[in-house]
């Protein structure tokens, strides 16, 4: 029984070492894979919600809004 365990441990150790060497020799297989992108039902990658870009967002301001121009005399009928 002790021999069985010894041989099993030897094979497990050899398999682990060879597996890790194999992994190290494969540049297309990183040690830690990138997180998987969940796919929608349509097969398109679901992008994380992002904050609107600063240029697109309206600038928050506490300044009084500029008054709308009053209609000129020609507009008034």
């Amino acid at each position: 029984m002790r021999r069985d365990v010894r041989e099993l441990l030897a094979l497990l150790a050899a398999g682990l070492v060879l597996g890790l060497v194999h992994l190290a020799l494969r540049p297309d297989l990183p040690w830690v894979p990138a997180p998987r992108v969940e796919e929608t039902m349509c097969g398109e990658a679901e992008l994380p919600l992002e904050q609107p870009a600063a240029s697109e967002a309206p600038a928050a301001s506490f300044a009084p809004a500029t008054p709308m121009s009053s209609p000129g005399p020609e507009d008034v009928r």
Partner: peptide
């Protein structure tokens, strides 16, 4: 877990190979 996926992907077939050879 994500960090084990690639280790398992290379180690498991190596163990299968060693068992077969033994």
């Amino acid at each position: 877990p994500d960090f084990l996926v690639n280790v398992v992907a290379t180690t498991a077939p190596m163990l299968e190979l060693l068992a077969a050879l033994a």
